[in-house]
Write a protein that binds this DNA or RNA. Structure first.
Lengths: 254, 254
DNA sequence: TCTCAATGAGAGCAGTGCTCTTGCACTGAA
DNA sequence: TTCAGTGCAAGAGCACTGCTCTCATTGAGA
């Protein structure tokens, strides 16, 4: 009894110690990531240097490889964080907008995504600019990467549920072949109400939204567009209409 | 007389030699650029190395600095080339489409730009991905960079001249403040017929077009969209309608 | 007490962009 | 013909990079 008890207590202590070690390890990894993010924001992904990160943290560069097996892995971690941050911004904007006016929610989400991008240009470039490492995004990034798209999808779905989403007048089979299998399965889930036929329009709007943001962040609008707030506002409404969102008060559609 | 004649002949010879030297110099520079372009297409801008270019050309790396003062200058030259190439593709498509059907010309230009991007992903990433050198595009790039936009503008102008361009129902003053001074001057030139009020819509469509292309080239459509041809085709028509282009045969607009 | 895994330190390798000096070849003029 | 000037390539070298290897320390488990 006592032996059993002490053994159990022992394993608890082991677990605590194990947990402490893991926590320390996680904290060091977080510190590395934090410093790397600082350098990324300051200088851009191209100038992010493992040795500089280690130097700033008072470690030697080789010690850093105990936590991230390569520079690309560190970059991947930053990519995941950036996707999560921009996704979080989109989700917060949708939550704040409420469910009463889908068109307003759409515009608010777009604005929030744009605002995040303008505040974090280098991190934005990391995820929506040229893909730096290799060319194949690691599997860890696909989940976080889809958060913004899922918010846009949720807004469209809310509009559909409220009866203010105009469905495209295309045959359903025509749309089904456009989207990939994964997305078809996603839309076929029982709790989803959004008709699959709007998926292509939504995907196009999604891409076009980031086209507007990228041109602004990457400087293509320099000496071309002055009032970028106004342009973005108008374009976002046009995008919503393209998806089928009608202004609130327009009632049900044909 | 003879002295004068021989002196003149002498200067001619000098000019010839001078020209030959300059031609040799230009040829070496072109060879460097060519090899750099090969490496860029094969490996991407991040892996483009001056030393590797020099090695491949059988020169020593320091000799290369006689022709391009820095790696960024070589990259800038490649950027200008890429802008020229994609602009050329757009111009050719417009020329081939003719002036009869503006909507078709619009779609053809968009398709040509997309095709070029998919054929030259690394060069596309260089010009429409994250800006690599510094963050400020050198002045040499602004001209070539605007070629695609000018083609889209010309298509819209042709549509206007043919009476199939729906003008936005916004006050002109509202649009004037959106676009930058340079563009206002461009549109105010006497030989331009396009109303300045469509400029914001055109700029938005321009950015959104490259959003669609970037998502495809950079892999954001992986596992999301299968039939990208179809999606792009539909989106481009929607973009044209957003600008105000009506299908041929729709006649003059309100 | 001994063992072993985790960690960090340091040296070192191959590669990078870039600078500087040196020497060669060729030019125009004395 | 000789000589100063010029453009060019070669090579050494600097400071930096990502990454690998070995070695010493440390601390927990048997």
């Amino acid at each position: 009894m006592l032996g059993q008890c002490s053994r159990r207590w022992h394993t608890v202590v082991m677990d605590v110690i194990q947990g402490a070690k893991e926590r320390v390890r996680a904290e060091v990894a977080a510190a590395i990531k934090g410093e790397a993010r600082r350098q990324l924001a300051a200088e851009g992904a191209a100038r992010l240097s493992l040795r500089a990160v280690a130097r700033e943290l008072g470690m030697v560069s080789s010690a850093l490889y105990r936590y991230f097996p390569s520079r690309d892995d560190l970059l991947t971690a930053l990519i995941v964080d950036a996707y999560d941050a921009i996704g979080q911004a989109a989700e917060s904007a949708r939550a704040a907008a409420g469910a009463t006016d889908p068109l307003r929610a759409w515009a608010d989400v777009c604005r929030a995504v744009r605002a995040w991008a303008l505040e974090h240009p280098h991190e934005y470039a990391l995820i929506y600019g040229s893909p730096v490492p290799g060319y194949a995004a690691p599997q860890d990034t696909v989940g976080p990467a889809s958060r913004v798209a899922l918010v846009l999808l949720a807004v469209a779905e809310a509009a559909h549920d409220a009866g203010v989403l105009a469905e495209p007048d295309l045959p359903a089979a025509d749309c089904d072949s456009v989207v990939a299998e994964d997305i078809r399965q996603l839309l076929d889930q029982p709790d989803r109400t959004l008709p699959g036929r709007v998926a292509p329009r939504l995907a196009a709007a999604w891409a076009q939204l980031f086209g507007l943001i990228s041109f602004e962040v990457f400087g293509q609008f320099n000496r071309v567009i002055d009032d970028r707030d106004a342009l973005f506002g108008k374009a976002v409404v046009a995008l919503a209409q393209q998806v089928g969102l009608r202004p609130a008060g327009a009632g049900a559609q044909a």
